[in-house]
Structure formats: C-alpha cells, structure tokens
Amino acid sequence: MTEYKEKEDSNFGMNKDLPNSNSIEVMDLKKHFIGKRKMEDVKAVDGISFQVKNGEVFGLLGPNGAGKTTTINILTGIYSPTEGVASVGGYDVQTDLKKIKELISVCPQEPAVHKFLSGLGNIKFFGDMYLMSKQQIKERSEELLKLLGLYDARKRLAKNYSGGMLRQLSLIISLINDPDILFLDEPTVGMDPRNRRKVWEFLGSMKKQERTIMLTTHYIEEAEALCDRVAIIDFGKLIAIGPPKELIKEHGVKDLEEVFMKITGRRILEGM
C-alpha cells in the first residue's frame, strides 16, 4: 500500500494575524495507543498530512478503525497527538485549544445527548455553553428543528426518541452555535434515507455559507454528494486525497469504493 503525502502549500507556523486560506492543517500527525497487551503499540493515526481550505467540505473516508475518529478527536482537543502538529482556524491544537473551541462544533459518532432533557432542553444547554442569548437560542433552534424535521418532537424527552431522531438532535446541537468549522463524525449513521437526504441538503446549504465542514463517513454516496475533497484513510495512513471525481477518474473506476479497493485490495465495508 502506498502512503500518500499531500504536497499542497502549507502556511503552518503562520502569523495568526494574517488571513489564512486553510481552516485545518495537519502535518505528519501520529497517535499511538498502548494496546490491551501492554507492549502492543496501536498506531491509530500514523503520520497523516493534509489541509482543509476555508469553506471546504472535506471528507475522511475509510473502514471502521481506519483512524478517522481519532483524527477528529485530535483536532477537537479530545486527544493529544503522539507526534506531529495540527492547527484549526490557525490555532495550534496543543497550545490554543481554548480559541479553537470558540470556532468549532462537533457532532460525535454516538448521539451524545442528555436523555432526561427534552430535545429543546438539550439544544438550550449547548447554546448556553457557547454563551448564546435566550433569543439567539430560540431563533436558531426553531430554524434548525424545522429544517431537520424535529420541531414537533422538540418537547419530548430525548429518552423517548428513536435512534434516528437522536442522531438528528445530535446534529442540531452541533449546529446551534453556527460554527465556523464543523466536525461531523459519521453524521447520518442510523438515519433513514429520507432524513439522510434532508441532512445532505442542509449541509449543502452550509457549504454555500462558506462554512468549513470536516466529516467522516463510510457511506460512499455521502462522500461523493457532499465533499469537495476526500481523504481515504486505512490503518491510520492517508492513501489517497483529492476531489471525488478526480480520484475516480485518476484510478479509472466508477466510484470511491472502487478507488479504495484498487489501492488496498479490500472493500471499505469489509472493514466494518
């Protein structure tokens, strides 16, 4: 398997007062964990480098355990990298996390919501975390609840929501602060096709507002429909990066799944 290194211009270590064309920059990022058998060194992320431009929808594509979520967890301050550097919004993830948290929002893989609160209660709680006023929270939550079809269920306790509704609520929570940079970790897993389409449409509209979105997915059609560029990851290494159509054309195949298969000899779904 050939490891891919992105060769685009990086302005790492740039003067933070100057406008930066990259929202996210990652250079030779590594994250190793100690495995259950103590001496085992698990390389979850193994030296990846890429940049995400302002206003770009960037997808991390790969099978389960490829390193997608770990990469997002490093960029959002959950994990510290073992080696390498990463910046979000021009701020270093190891030293300027506080500033990064003002710019971003994260929709985690699991629908992490307070089950004892209503849908609206959850949204208000997270609105408070971003110091939004009551009026701002009211207007924004109504807009999002209506757009994503959860308005009628807003007063129900989250514990009574279906799996798909919890995913929608989790997504709405991540959008409440209208973030400059949005991290979505498999945002549509568990949603029915109709709601998945609705989410795609909404994310498409965010793209028009020049919001930067980084999403992980193993849905090929999701990556192709939403992403300006995708990075294909396997065993913690970046194996291909580029606009979906270009990758497909370059490898002479019909979709991204086949790109993955051509490079790795496996299907993305095999790893799941």
Partner: peptide, 14 residues
C-alpha cells in the same frame, strides 16, 4: 459513559 463528557469538553466550557 454516554460520550457526553467528551462532547461537553469540545465546547468552550472550562
């Protein structure tokens, strides 16, 4: 356990 702590930790809450 529910992943809420991690989610909250990605917000500006100190």
């Amino acid at each position: 356990e529910l992943g809420l702590q991690r989610r909250i930790n990605t917000t500006p809450l100190t």
